[in-house]
Design a protein around this nucleic acid. Structure first.
Lengths: 162, 162
DNA sequence: TGTTTTTAGATCGGACACGATCTAATCGGA
DNA sequence: TCCGATTAGATCGTGTCCGATCTAAAAACA
């Protein structure tokens, strides 16, 4: 058993990093959702793509990507997979052949119904803080993306301390 | 331009899902950190591994994995990469040949010093809410992992609504 | 002691996430 | 109208993450 040997007692601890809390909470979400998603035969990313499509049908790949914060290099293979599974349809927009319109099939809509209970999930323990945390994380995301789009390193360095 | 056509106006919106907020905030963190990590020549996972090792040296792969919420299948390739980069040393524990002990090299320690400013970063906008959000996300992670370890689907279904 | 079981890492295949690059379609200015 | 610039997706290579499986070492126990 190795003795705890803090190399830098003055340095901030990983456990206090917000980035690490988010990172590891995301891993935890994946593990908590896995059993239910396995029953549906979906991955998490496929799942949120279905949700987003159920909110607005016939979106372009780019439009969907804006909602999911993903780009075509990530989305295209996922959408092809969902199409192969029969849950969505992909077709070039006749008005602009560059765009691909994506829409749910009846099977896809059906799947979204089955997945409805999933939106409630595993937030137990947050209690009344839930909406506060949700909003704060969204705000955090917004700030991070602003920093990233802006110029990255520069913006981050001038950001407030954690 | 496609008209917004909510398929299920009564269904919860993706934008309100806590899981999605966490998921997308994690993506955003990755993008915000990328420029700095690129300068260091590290990926995010490599970075947190270095941080964890700087807090306690000579850990086993399993022990490190507990802190990072990762297992050997993920950790081993990352540690091998860090070893190849010269930042860590991996060696079998003579007292228990099954275990691999990981420790920072001087170069690795040096790198951690250079990465020190990174712990402050891009939380701007949360202000005084910061510690509240950080703790809430950690609590959330803990609950999710409990649900996942427990039995997954069963536990999640009985969890409180988002 | 010898055999069975458990444990720690490692390996492998599948699925993201992303930077870089490519192609095809559209747009815009001369 | 024509051609360079822009735009939307698609493709490819790298690096996680994870389930499943493998190997070797240690522990358990008859």
């Amino acid at each position: 058993m190795p003795a705890p040997t803090p190399e830098r007692p003055d340095a901030p601890r990983l456990a206090d990093f917000l980035c690490f809390a988010i990172y590891s909470a995301n891993l935890a979400y994946g593990r908590a959702y896995k059993p239910i998603l396995d029953e549906l035969g979906l991955t998490y990313t496929q799942y949120i793509a279905i949700i987003a499509l159920s909110e607005e049908d016939n979106q372009s790949v780019g439009g969907l990507g804006e909602k999911l914060f993903l780009e075509s290099n990530t989305l295209t293979p996922i959408l092809k997979k969902l199409e192969a599974l029969g849950y969505i349809r992909r077709q070039r927009d006749p008005a602009d052949e560059r765009q691909v319109r994506v829409s749910l099939t009846p099977e896809g809509r059906n799947l979204r119904e089955k997945a409805l209970p999933m939106n409630l999930a595993a937030a137990a323990g947050l209690g009344e803080d839930f909406p506060v945390v949700q909003k704060a994380v969204v705000r955090l995301r917004s700030n991070l993306l602003k920093a990233a789009r802006g110029q990255g390193a520069k913006a981050v360095e001038t950001a407030e301390a954690e």
